[in-house]
């Protein structure tokens, strides 16, 4: 990942004024920001990005080991790909499920803990 460095960048602290890679951009904007549907009808576009929830992972050494390998490859690739080809009415649940063995969490922008309804 290319990170614009500045100031005190070192091998133990990497600095960037702004996110450049997709994963970092997702970190900053996905599931973040004001949700205004308490005030007005909104349609939040249903982009669903698969992320990996390591808490579910550790069912057995077998899955742990397989997952360890998979995560290293998947973590970014998966995000890049899921990264945003699919949209609206989102729900490619089944396609991705097998890939990361159910250890995933769906993230819908702005709807972290709220209901998943969409207007219109």
């Amino acid at each position: 990942m290319a990170v614009a460095t500045r100031g005190t960048s070192s091998n133990y602290l990497q600095r960037a004024p702004s996110p450049s890679g997709l994963a970092d951009v997702l970190d900053v904007i996905l599931d973040k920001g004001l949700v205004i549907d308490a005030y007005v009808r909104v349609s939040v576009i249903g982009i669903e990005v698969v992320t990996i929830d390591a808490r579910i992972v550790i069912a057995s050494v077998d899955t742990y080991l397989r997952f360890a390998e998979a995560v290293n490859r998947l973590d970014l690739q998966q995000t890049e790909r899921a990264g945003i080809e699919e949209l609206r009415g989102g729900g490619k649940k089944d396609e991705t499920k097998g890939v990361i063995e159910g250890a995933k969490e769906k993230v819908t922008p702005g709807r972290g803990n709220s209901r998943k309804e969409r207007s219109r």
Partner: peptide
């Protein structure tokens, strides 16, 4: 900042609902 993907129906709804309402 708003959540990514926030779309409102019209500028009238935005004004009444949010700029005034919120």
């Amino acid at each position: 900042p708003c959540a990514f993907g926030t779309i409102v129906e019209s500028s009238a709804e935005l004004e009444d609902g949010v700029l005034i309402g919120a």
